[in-house]
């Protein structure tokens, strides 16, 4: 019985809100706010009415959703490699952050969408421009958290490793990075949600396909159910990606004694 009541506690208010929205939207008949059932129907037509050979998926799934997801993951992976690599190097160096710290703090504060025009002329319209936007916007949380994490290696750990004459490569991969992992994961989740946002932004400004393009296109031809369907899809994607990364984090950080300290905040910007 316990799982059932737990499930009810967790989801009853959510479903109640959806039903309320449905009723309110049907009563108000406001064109801007279609009822959830209409949005679901539109979503079904948009994505799941394709031929059986394609598992019922429509062309939109292959031409818009998959390229967008590819950009998010591609850009994010580059940001992870650059962020963790550079962050480990800077965190281990005594003076490195003194040279670049203020510069990075400034760059993190730059609103990435305003750099889209610059990336647009540098890389022209296409995937490299979107990747550049995503990498530039999402690399900072990973980089700065990695620096922080690498510096959090305790003196005991360092002295133990030193007294065993641990080889350098072994020291970095087996001691420093695992110790930094909770902080790194906090940065990873923040930057994954940023990558999703920047994918949408870069596709809104300069693209001919992708989720962001379809979203703004649906708005421009006043197709409100379709616009809502894309918004809901982005919500589901954001939720799913975050849940996926959380599951990975739980598995990888099982051995950490103080899991509470690593809980980081993510933003929905």
């Amino acid at each position: 019985m316990r799982p059932v009541t737990g499930f009810l506690q967790r989801w009853s208010l959510f479903f109640g809100a959806v039903v309320l929205w449905e009723l309110a939207a049907r009563l108000a008949e406001d064109p801007f706010f279609p009822p959830p059932t209409t949005i679901l129907q539109t979503a079904g037509q948009l994505w799941f009415s394709g031929p059986a050979g394609h598992l019922l998926l429509t062309g939109s799934v292959f031409n818009d959703i998959l390229p967008s997801l590819g950009r998010v993951f591609g850009g994010w992976l580059i940001a992870v490699l650059v962020g963790v690599g550079l962050g480990t190097f800077l965190g281990r160096s005594k003076t490195g952050m003194d040279y670049v710290g203020p510069l990075f703090a400034f760059m993190r504060a730059v609103p990435p969408p305003t750099l889209v025009p610059v990336f647009l002329v540098l890389f022209s319209i296409g995937t490299p421009m979107k990747l550049a936007t995503i990498v530039f916007g999402s690399v900072w949380p990973i980089l700065l958290n990695t620096v922080d994490g690498v510096r959090s290696v305790s003196t005991t750990q360092r002295e133990t490793a030193e007294s065993f004459r641990t080889p350098k490569a072994y020291w970095v991969t087996m001691v420093v990075l695992p110790a930094a992992l909770p902080k790194i994961f906090a940065g990873l989740r923040l930057s994954l949600s940023l990558a999703l946002i920047l994918m949408v932004v870069s596709e809104m400004v300069g693209a001919t396909d992708g989720i962001g393009y379809q979203l703004i296109f649906a708005q421009q031809r006043f197709d409100f159910p379709a616009m809502w369907a894309w918004i809901v899809l982005l919500g589901v994607l954001g939720y799913g990606l975050n849940a996926l990364l959380l599951a990975v984090e739980r598995r990888m950080l099982d051995w950490q004694p103080t899991r509470g300290a690593a809980r980081a905040q993510t933003t929905g910007a």
């Binding site: 959510f14 918004i231 982005l234």
Partner: peptide, 19 residues
């Protein structure tokens, strides 16, 4: 309210710009 918060939070706010 967890389910509602967890669903609303990850919606990228830029996705709401057209709306």
């Amino acid at each position: 309210t967890t389910a509602i918060v967890e669903f609303l939070r990850p919606i990228p706010s830029v996705a709401l710009i057209p709306l």
